[in-house]
Design a protein around this nucleic acid. Structure first.
Lengths: 216, 216
DNA sequence: TAGTGTGAAACGGTTCACAGCG
DNA sequence: CGCTGTGAACCGTTTCACACTA
């Protein structure tokens, strides 16, 4: 089951990105089922709730090793736990927000994120009037303090919600300060400022385009 | 180039969903180039800025008919306009927000959306204390008035940012009231409440999972 | 000549159909 | 017997390499 690299080191089997994406969906639905007290679920039902085919679901899960019981189905709680572990959702992550605006404020106060183990431990801004304030229980630091605070608070993920400029500059600073990954929720795609840094562009307005296309 | 359906009616050539998604990216980068005064761009540069391969970009554009000039490149302004037309971004769309929370408020005040031609013309909530208020210049109606207001204001797209419950109920109401599409930005995937309604799930927390996976 | 447009090959993901197992 | 797990066939997307044209 486990693939080996040329040098025969065992490597994490490369999941297709789409599979990964679906895994995150499965987790959310499993959480709901779990909340509703369901103990068992069959691939057919879980697939329908997630909007995929049962074969797809079983194939996705089989990449990770069989979690189900033949003739029975999947244990909701156990599957949820396994998938979360694979997605890295079995521990706490420290986040920092770089650049404050409405969307950023909404994220800071979003209970879902902290329930998921994603905690904002700091915010950064370049505007005097924001520095030193506490918003949604998070302290706003000057950008100059970023390097120190990121190291001190063990921030691993930086979050951007602002436009370019200053998005690109903020990304560079975050990367310099030592975060390992950046989530860019701003409107414009950025490139990773440094080799080894993971940067994802996830513009909130993008799905609107898919809708307006479909409606045209 | 143009495909024909069995009955030989000309149909919009079905774009692969991934292509569509990339088109939206291209538009955003073209907007930036345009703002910066660039008139011409070659596939190699545009592709790099969008994080795809030049071959991919050219193939995507060739689905839509050749927009470029051999030996020269693409006219930034003209390509931007063409792509926007294809995505349905060449006109104004009326949106309604169903269920108010922090994320919803952030959307209402987001200038980018209105610059894109996406205008919130109404908001709906079930809580007495919200009804009748005006937030970010948008009036908050009771859910009972939805049917009337949606028709009157010609709302085509409904936007959800709330949890389930009441997300599912809100989706059903929107669909009943006559919107053609629903964007669910809430945490849990929903199914289209009715045949013919387009529903997209675009949970904001999803990209976080992809990052925590990559970092694990 | 430089860079687009595009068939054809290569790749990767999805679906199928059934073997395998509780 | 029922439902999962999975090799193999299928299908759509990406990449390649080059014909084409301003």
């Amino acid at each position: 089951m486990r693939k080996t690299s040329p040098g025969s080191f065992p490597v994490k089997p490369r999941l297709p990105e789409v599979t990964l994406y679906r895994l995150a969906f499965y987790v959310r639905v499993l959480e709901r089922l779990s909340r509703e007290g369901r103990e068992l679920v069959r691939s057919e039902e879980l697939a329908r709730l997630c909007g995929v085919s049962p074969a797809q679901l079983r194939k996705d899960l089989s990449y990770l090793g069989g979690f189900g019981v033949r003739g029975v189905g999947y244990q909701v709680k156990s599957l949820e736990r396994q998938l979360k572990r694979i997605l890295g959702r079995d521990r706490l992550w420290h986040l920092a927000l770089a650049g404050i605006n409405d969307l950023g404020l909404a994220l800071l106060s979003d209970r879902r994120l902290s329930r998921m183990g994603l905690r904002f431990v700091a915010a950064f801004d370049w505007r005097e009037e924001w520095i030193g304030r506490i918003v949604q229980e998070v302290y706003v630091y000057s950008v100059d303090q970023m390097s120190y605070i990121v190291r001190e608070s063990e921030v691993e993920i930086g979050v951007l919600t602002v436009e370019e400029p200053p998005a690109r500059e903020m990304a560079r600073r975050l990367s310099e300060a030592g975060v390992r990954a950046i989530l860019n929720l701003g409107p414009e795609p950025l490139e990773a400022p440094e080799e080894g840094i993971i940067l994802r562009n996830a513009d909130l307005t993008l799905p609107f385009d898919l809708l307006t296309y479909a409606l045209s």
